[in-house]
Computed example of a mutant assay.
Amino acid sequence: MSIAHAGVAAWHAYMNSGGDAALLSAQVADDAVFHSPVVHSPQEGKAKVMLYLLSAAKVLGNESFTYVREIIDGNDALLEFTSVIDGIHINGIDLIRFDDEGKIIDFKVMVRPVKAVNKLWEMMAAQLQAAAG
């Protein structure tokens, strides 16, 4: 099994866990970077990446969320997903790069259509604010 295949299997275990922070923490490298579809600048470091990924799991992780396609090449994986939030159909991808130990070092999310991006921006802002206390 390749590094990315193992990393994707671990990612699915996390997603199926209902957002287990310990499972996610074991997968994210200390110098990981997160690229949000709604925040211009990359979010650098494990703490910020964890914050965004945990928040995204709460926002997107409803009963309609599903991965519909996976493309794996070397240390890279592209996971296409669909979800429905407030009647808005969301289509997106998670583009994940793993280091040679199988930890996430780069995580980029892209979402379409624009209506879905706007809904995610609204919901992620609220979730991130709640997580910050």
Rank of each mutant, 00 (worst) to 15 (best):
I71Q: 13
A22K: 00
L54V: 07
M123T: 04
I71K: 08
G92P: 06
R97G: 09
W11Y: 12
A125I: 02
L60T: 04
A130Q: 11
A131P: 09
H40M: 08
A56R: 06
H89Y: 01
L120V: 10
A126E: 00
A132G: 10
A6R: 10
N75I: 11
F81D: 05
G45M: 00
K115H: 12
L120Q: 00
N16R: 11
V59N: 03
T82D: 04
L79D: 15
S25Y: 03
F107Q: 07
W121Q: 15
S17D: 09
A22P: 01
G19A: 04
D106R: 10
T66P: 02
E101K: 13
A9N: 11
V111Q: 15
F107H: 14
L51H: 01
A130S: 12
V28E: 13
H5I: 06
G92H: 13
V117S: 07
S2M: 01
R97H: 13
Q43R: 13
T66F: 00
D86K: 00
M50Q: 06
S2P: 02
W121A: 11
N91S: 10
R112L: 06
A32S: 09
M123H: 12
D73I: 13
V111H: 14
M110W: 11
A22C: 01
N75Q: 11
A56K: 03
G19Y: 08
P42Y: 01
I96F: 10
W11M: 15
D100Q: 10
D94M: 07
K48A: 09
S17P: 09
I104F: 13
D86V: 03
M1L: 02
L120W: 10
P37W: 14
V38E: 04
D100H: 06
V117N: 09
L54Q: 00
V38Q: 03
S2L: 00
A26C: 02
L23C: 01
L24C: 03
G74A: 08
V68N: 14
S64W: 01
H5C: 05
V117A: 11
E80F: 13
I90P: 10
D86R: 00
I93A: 15
P42M: 02
G61S: 08
K108T: 14
L78K: 14
I105Q: 13
A77W: 15
P113N: 14
G92N: 11
V111K: 12
L79C: 07
K108R: 15
K48C: 01
P37L: 08
G74V: 07
Q27S: 07
L23R: 07
G87R: 05
A9L: 08
A132D: 05
A10R: 14
F34M: 07
R69I: 08
I104M: 08
